Simulated scan of single mutants.
Amino acid sequence: MKIKSSNNHQTGAVSTFYDLVNTNFQGAVNAICWSRDLAGDFKEIVSKLQLKENITEVSIEDLLALQLSEKGNLARETILTDLQLLADFGASPSLNLLKSYERDEELDFISTDVYSYHVDRSTIGTDTFLCTYYGAASDILPNNQVEQKILIPEIREKLQELHNGSEAEFEAFLKEYYFDLHYQPKPNAQPINLGLGHLWKLAVDHPEQKVLPCVHRAPAENDGEYRLLLIC
């Protein structure tokens, strides 16, 4: 299927799950969206789920145990359908209730947590799928609007001081600690918000990938509000 490209040239749009999983990335497009306007009350689901940790995985059994209104049940059916579609495709989807992710505060000159713009890496051919049902939604950035953090001279110099080894070992060190996966937005960069209810497929860095991996980040959470996120 030919991707319907948006005017930012990085994202493509499809209208069915079948098209989402069967449409290949091409050219500059490394993020494809199954655009949806979902019905149902996802806030009700969030309000009735129990947060056990800052990131709590929600099981199908947890969802089915909730006593919900008609609109809440409609939202639950959507989530269950999405989980089943992805599982049937061969993915391993996870539904997470999120208060916050862990922050990386070990080094003051570079961050490697999920709030930093980054790409995903895999040793096998795969894609990242995600959908935010409730709360703040993730952002992506076009690859020409970011700079790899390890190529920024002042950051690279400090990392070299931290490593204090040969250049070959230094490159291995950058990969081992995932420094090479993180990016700094260029001045005037324009993030693309992934919005609520849409199911996205993002390109991952792996040996078979024919396009650049998609640069994305987790959003700062809204005050007093949890996020409900499907990801795999």
Rank of each mutant, 00 (worst) to 15 (best):
K2P: 15
K2H: 11
K4L: 14
S6L: 15
N7K: 00
Q10Y: 15
G12Y: 08
S15V: 11
S15D: 12
D19M: 08
V21M: 06
F25A: 06
N30V: 12
N30A: 11
I32F: 06
W34L: 11
S35Q: 07
S35P: 05
R36T: 10
R36K: 10
L38H: 07
F42P: 10
V46D: 06
K48C: 10
K48H: 10
L51K: 11
L51R: 15
L51M: 12
N54Y: 08
N54D: 08
I55W: 02
V58K: 05
V58E: 01
D62P: 07
S69W: 00
S69P: 02
E70I: 15
L74P: 13
R76A: 12
R76C: 11
T78E: 15
T78N: 14
D82Q: 00
L85D: 03
S92V: 09
N96T: 15
L97T: 12
L97I: 13
K99D: 13
S100C: 12
Y101P: 09
E105Y: 09
L107R: 02
F109T: 02
S111P: 04
S111C: 13
S111T: 14
T112Q: 02
D113N: 09
Y117K: 03
Y117W: 03
I124S: 03
I124G: 04
T126N: 07
D127L: 08
D127M: 08
F129A: 06
F129N: 09
F129S: 01
L130H: 07
Y133P: 05
Y134N: 09
G135M: 13
G135N: 06
A137H: 02
S138Y: 06
L141R: 07
L141H: 10
N143Q: 04
N144H: 15
K149A: 14
E154C: 07
E169K: 04
E169G: 05
F170I: 09
F170C: 06
F170P: 01
E176G: 14
Y178M: 00
H182K: 02
Y183R: 00
A189P: 07
P191E: 03
I192C: 06
G195C: 13
G197R: 14
H198Q: 09
H206S: 01
P207R: 05
C214Y: 02
R217Q: 15
G224Q: 14
R227N: 14
R227L: 09
L228A: 02
L228W: 10
L229R: 04
L230S: 09
I231N: 00
I231H: 03
